[in-house]
Design a protein around this nucleic acid. Structure first.
Length: 606
RNA sequence: GGGGCCGUAGCUCAAUUGGUUAGAGCAUCGGACUGUCGAUCCGAAGGUUGCGGGUUCGAUUCCCGUCGGCCUCGCCA
């Protein structure tokens, strides 16, 4: 008689000594089997709740034991039996380790082929392999835990924002291509041949329109799409917890956002996050950390030593300073113990991100015990050694690393060095969460490539009122009413107060070199809506994937997404993207370029 | 588009300066075993060294190309 698998009594992680004596029905996958010959067979049964050991005794249940002997890893089974105590033979590694199920009946629901890799946390498998067999990879306990955390965090955000009066409203996936920002994924229209929808990079304009529609407080768990190259923390489709509020100013958005994050950290990790978060201006972040998302878990600030090294004899510095550049340094406590091999390795790596090299020196005890600079560029710095040691606060045993040139490059190189040194030298404290807001970000940055100003955030961002009169005369000095929450060097979100005045919106478009005709072609709906009583509003979008990465302690975004893509945005599981029938293309009025056809043909004959 | 690392058994990896029949652990298969729990013991099977070319008496090793994976710069409002 078949065992009623639809009447499971609990999951495989639930049973405890207090359940001893109860009849149970469990179903799941064979995690492991141990066959002890004549008498005993053990099966570790796994489902998303955990693992329960099942015992088969040939003396009492010969038929079930016969079946159990044939079971192999990843077979899907259902068992019926009785919870018994393990006596002395407890397994402290399992929450269910004090009990086991004495199985009287077992049924194989589906036999598994030998899996291509073992479903266990301790067995590593190549990542493309894991993605090809993602349904097996997701059975691993850590992956299951991650997906469960993800679920809980989503619930947590939803509950929090509902309680704060937010409405969850969906926005279109098929929408309009936008000129600024990332490359769009395009969807050809069958009904309008030659015309295209775009997948949303974010629901930005729709959420602003919802504010103009009077919904006041909006939230959505929104899937967003950007056709740009991938990174360890970037996927072509990703999830944002998207917010927008009307009749608010900057303080209101910051307040509700930081409280939501505090709740999520409390609920998932039990960590109390103090609110309000500290705030740092963009200029301060760039000056002290060289990056707009500083990791405040460790010090290693960037120190401007331009004036100090001006009198040194190091040519590279002289040239940089003469060209209007700067020289900055990082003081690494204990860095003098680094080997030549280590520092040479850093030099090669920093050259890989565009630096000319990595000037450095060590602070050692000279004659009489006074600190002096040795190795590296020490001899060139001799004329300014005392002053440099004083300016950097360097002590005997430290190392000093330098970068020189344009502010942007120095910042980029030393920001990389700062976090690399902190990681390799073990300077990052565990279980520390350093939240902050980065505010007062410039509205625009100049794009050499495009020969014009481009938005740092997006074109709908409100400038600070006191900077408005410089929008035309000095756009580079205008700061935005934008705000980014950052934790441990990770940008969690990005948001701003929006422009709700058509005149200001037009001035910003003009500053961006977007003509009136183009603005109307691309944003007619927004510009029109701004003329019908648009309320002041603002919001932000939290990067859910990165939040889950932080909460689960992974540095790989693929680990927090059930079905992610490879670095080339390929899915090994579904083997997509993939070619489509000529008929489908014909319906869309699309003809492939000759070069593309040739490539496809060549690939097929291979 | 640029830089870096990698590709050897089903999986994770090793293989000396370019040199005998390319090894190990896990998985698999067969056998043993009364309490294991990442079981243990005995045995077996398992390889176009990603693919193509070159150098060489001889290539997993060196060179060129190509395909794929990862990290990264550019890019990502």
């Amino acid at each position: 008689m078949a065992i009623p698998y639809n009447k499971r009594t609990c999951d495989c992680g639930a049973l405890r000594p207090s359940d001893v004596g109860k009849p149970v029905t469990l179903a799941g996958w064979v995690n492991n089997y141990r066959d002890h010959g004549d008498n005993l067979v053990f099966i570790d049964l796994r489902d998303r709740g955990g693992i329960t050991q099942c015992r088969f005794n040939v003396d009492t249940d010969p038929q079930a034991t016969r079946v159990a002997r044939t079971l192999r890893k990843e077979d899907c089974i259902v068992v019926r039996g009785e919870v018994i105590s393990r006596g002395e033979n407890i397994n402290p590694k399992l929450p269910t380790g004090h009990i086991e199920v004495s199985v009287h009946e077992v049924e194989l629901l589906n036999k598994s082929l030998t899996p291509p890799f073992e479903v266990a946390d301790h067995v590593e498998a190549g990542e493309d392999h894991r993605l090809k067999y993602r349904f097996l990879d997701l059975r691993r306990p850590t992956m299951q835990r991650t997906m469960i955390v993800r679920h809980r965090v989503l619930q947590c955000f939803r509950n929090f924002f509902y309680n704060e009066g937010f409405l969850e409203i969906e926005t279109p996936i098929l929408t309009k291509s936008t000129p600024e920002g990332a490359r769009d994924y395009l969807i050809p229209s069958r009904v309008f041949p030659g015309e295209f929808y775009a997948l949303p990079q974010s629901p930005q304009l729709f959420k602003q329109l919802l504010m103009m529609s009077g919904f006041d407080r909006y939230m959505q768990i929104a899937r967003c799409f950007r056709d740009e190259d991938l990174r360890a923390d970037r996927q072509p489709e990703f999830t944002q917890v998207d917010l927008e509020m009307a009749f608010v100013d900057l303080e209101d958005v910051l307040d509700v956002t930081e409280r939501s994050l505090a709740v999520v950290w409390k609920e998932t990790l039990g960590v109390e996050v103090p609110v309000p978060f500290r705030r740092m201006s963009y200029d301060e972040a760039m000056r002290d950390y060289g990056i707009d998302r500083p990791d405040l878990r460790f010090d290693l600030k960037l120190l401007d030593v331009s004036d100090v090294v001006r009198a040194s004899t190091f040519n590279i510095f002289q040239q940089a300073l003469a060209a209007g550049g700067i020289v900055k340094a990082i003081r690494l406590p204990g860095g003098a113990e680094m080997t030549r091999k280590e520092t040479d390795g850093l030099t090669v790596e920093i050259q890989g991100i565009g630096a000319g090299g990595l000037p450095m020196t060590k602070v050692v005890a000279g004659q009489g015990g006074a600190p002096e600079l040795q190795t590296g560029i020490g001899k060139f710095l001799a004329p300014v050694a005392d002053e440099l040691i004083r300016a950097t606060g360097a002590e005997i045993g430290d190392a000093l690393f330098f970068a020189c040139g344009k502010f942007e490059n120095v910042s980029k190189h030393l920001a990389w060095l700062r976090s690399t040194l902190a990681q390799r030298r073990g300077l990052i404290p565990k279980d520390r969460w350093e939240f902050l807001w980065v505010i007062d970000v410039p509205m625009f940055e100049y794009s050499e490539e495009d020969g014009r100003w481009v938005s740092m955030h997006h074109p709908f961002t409100m400038p600070r009122e006191e900077d408005l009169d410089r929008l035309e005369s000095d756009p580079g000095s205008v700061r935005a009413k934008s705000y980014d929450p950052v934790v441990n060097g990770v940008e969690l979100a990005s948001g701003s107060i929006r422009i709700h005045d058509q005149a200001i919106q037009n001035r910003v478009f003009r500053a961006l070199g977007i003509s009136e005709a183009e603005a109307h072609a691309k944003f007619e709906h927004l510009l029109t809506a701004l003329q019908y009583g648009a309320p002041p509003h603002g919001g932000l979008a939290l990067g859910l994937d990165r939040i889950i990465m932080l909460l689960t302690g992974t540095d790989n975004i693929r680990d927090v997404i059930a079905f992610p893509k490879t670095q080339r945005a390929y899915c090994p599981l579904t083997e997509c993207p993939s070619p489509v029938d000529d008929k489908q293309l014909a319906e869309l009025g699309i003809d492939l370029a000759a070069s593309v056809k040739a490539k496809l043909a060549a690939a097929q004959t291979m």
